[in-house]
């Protein structure tokens, strides 16, 4: 199962929301869709989910065009929008049951599917509650349940973690990991980039409707943040300014700064050169307690490649 976004363009009047973007992702992969507000993420996701029509270009979901055959594509895509379910006057079970029916599940098959999804998304205990009585986190679970009830191969999640408390976020992350294990292709947008780093295999970074970077996290990391950041913690914090001066004169070092009592510097050399730096520090009598490489994450990539422009 493969999703191919091809030369997608969407205009709203004179505003170009999505400007000729192309990328693809596969089953079993979680793809992060990252960009500042107004970058065109939601529009792209809505086009993949057949809610919007592109101005030009197309999206092929397992070879099915969302423009030409939206009815067929809908069977394959489960969409969790950034808005919560609006049907406040129906119960959780009725809501999921309706979408089961709407996607053609019949009789016992539907009953089993709805019950399984209620268990999976952990809403079985609140199945008789009206949607309006649910918390945001619970509504988000119901929304995910709705998208999963007909077992689509592709999941498109627009800001699913927005407004969730830390526990709900962890649970959502676990659910997504489980879904990826089930060989679903997942495209997820979020502003909580540290979390995306933990669950995504790949990433698309978009700004002002254009793709800035795309690929696996490691590839993008190498490309966008070529220098690694190394943190040094000394036993004597007061030696920090002295260390800062010394370290800036060492080879391959750039942009040294003090962060929370530690000295962080960007390093362009290889592992041997890093080891040589540590030796030099010890030779110059610095009491090094910790010398570690801080892993660059999506947030670093995001801050490096985007300019914060909106349309």
């Amino acid at each position: 199962m493969k999703v191919q976004v091809k030369n997608l363009r969407k205009e709203f009047g004179r505003t170009v929301a999505v400007d000729d973007i192309s990328f693809s992702f596969d089953s079993g992969h979680v793809f992060g869709f990252v960009g500042p507000n107004g970058a065109g993420k939601t529009t792209t996701m809505r086009i993949i989910s057949t809610i919007e029509e592109p101005t030009s270009g197309d999206v092929l979901v397992d070879g099915v065009s969302v423009c030409e055959e939206p009815e067929l594509a809908r069977r394959l895509v489960g969409y969790v929008p950034d808005t919560l379910p609006a049907h406040g006057d129906v119960t959780v079970h009725e809501y999921l049951d309706f979408y089961g029916r709407a996607y053609g599940l019949r009789g016992q098959k539907r009953t089993r599917a709805v019950e399984a999804i209620e268990e999976f998304t952990n809403v079985a205990g609140i199945r008789e509650k009206h949607l309006r009585a649910l918390s945001k986190g619970m509504k988000q679970r119901v929304s995910l349940g709705r998208a999963l009830v007909y077992d689509p191969h592709i999941l498109v999640l627009d800001e699913p973690a927005a407004g969730l408390d830390p526990r709900a976020r962890v649970e959502l992350r676990e659910l997504l990991a489980l879904l990826a294990e089930q060989k679903k292709a997942i495209l997820i947008s979020s502003h909580i980039l540290t979390e995306l780093t933990e669950i995504c295999n790949g990433v698309v970074i978009i700004e002002r409707g254009k793709i800035l970077e795309t690929g696996t996290i490691d590839d993008v990391l190498k490309k966008s943040v070529p220098r690694r950041t190394i943190a040094v913690r000394l036993a004597d914090v007061s030696a920090g300014p002295h260390l800062l001066k010394e370290i800036l004169q060492m080879p391959h070092v750039e942009n040294a700064r003090t962060v929370a009592g530690e000295t962080h510097f960007e390093f362009g050399g290889n592992d041997d050169a890093a080891a040589e730096i540590l030796n030099l520090l010890i030779a110059r009598k610095f009491k090094v307690v910790e010398f570690r490489q801080t892993r660059a994450n999506l947030e670093d990539i995001f801050m490096t490649v985007t300019k914060g422009g909106v349309q």
């Binding site: 976004v5 197309d58 790949g202 590839d219 993008v220």
Partner: peptide
């Protein structure tokens, strides 16, 4: 058949 786009990151 539209031309294949190189899969990103795969």
């Amino acid at each position: 058949v539209p031309p294949e786009t190189a899969p990103a990151g795969q």
